[in-house]
Design a binder for these strands. Structure first.
Lengths: 151, 151
DNA sequence: TTAATATCTAAAGCTAACTTTAGATCAAGA
DNA sequence: TCTTGATCTAAAGTTAGCTTTAGATATTAA
């Protein structure tokens, strides 16, 4: 079986457009795999470039590093992701994207109906629902709107 | 001219569903207005409830406190926002929402075309474009996709 | 009057996701 | 061999957006 070529931390950094310190950080966090040379330097499978790309995209979508770690750990045998793995991960992504789009669409219509009326107060409109927050719950914020918002 | 009724910090906290410490924090940051009683306690115009609601919604949309401060400072005379002010602010919101939806839609199609092909590497796909980042630039990330992504 | 509750300030603490610093060591080229 | 340049570690610093703490004062209710 062919060995994946191993590359240096600087190589990964350059290829992904990030600082060396970030790659080292990820390696320390064990969110990307690495092995050591006899001299003590980290070396990485080339596929780590893909893995870092994935991390960056996921972060941009609002996933925390912990969540991303979970996504990646969910891969069978925690192996280096294959083409099929990426495909199934992208399906998870797609769901999240669609969910977020739905949330934003809902917010948009809520704003149209609610801020426009000038009543932006929590007890009346509940446009913002504190109990079920995007940022903390991740389960999808609910932006509630009364049927007939009052002035 | 009728005086707006002034309310305590605890009242604002309860009505907006937040901790007193948060309201105090916002007051210290001068993102919400307040005056002092002879005894030294802060009191707030009731309209601060709306202002806090606005802040919470905007944060949920990804605005930083600094950006929110700017949005609110842009109001004429930095006055307590009127119904019309809220309306025009909501238009700014709507633009942001639409922009973000467009970004996510773009990302979705990029994922379909790119992660599926298994080539998720920055130099080839540029699915993630480091130079023009949502989080830092706010100007709208560009998720670029080559015409014919390579395996 | 007394006790409980609310508020105050200033400073420190917290979390995530990093970067920076300082000093050491390793590897490669002239 | 000497000198860069790359890498290492551990610890501290950074930013945003808060909360917590500690001790003081104020306000309200009984």
């Amino acid at each position: 079986m062919p060995q994946e070529p191993l590359v240096s931390i600087g190589f990964i950094a350059k290829r992904t457009g990030n600082a060396v310190s970030l790659i080292r950080y990820y390696a320390n966090q064990e969110i990307i795999p690495s092995v050591r040379t006899p001299g003590g330097s980290r070396v990485f499978p080339r596929s780590v470039i893909r893995r870092v790309s994935f991390i960056l995209i996921a972060q941009n979508m609002g996933y925390s590093l912990d969540e991303i770690r979970q996504l990646l750990n969910a891969l069978p045998d925690n192996r280096t992701p294959t083409k099929d793995d990426w495909t199934s991960l992208s399906e998870v992504f797609n769901q999240r994207i669609e969910q977020r789009i739905a949330e934003l669409t809902q917010l948009k219509s809520s704003l149209a109906g609610c801020i426009g009326c000038g009543c932006l107060s929590l007890d009346k409109c509940r446009l913002y629902n504190k109990e079920d927050n995007i940022a903390t719950k991740g389960a999808g914020a609910r932006f509630l709107l009364d049927d007939r918002p009052n002035l």
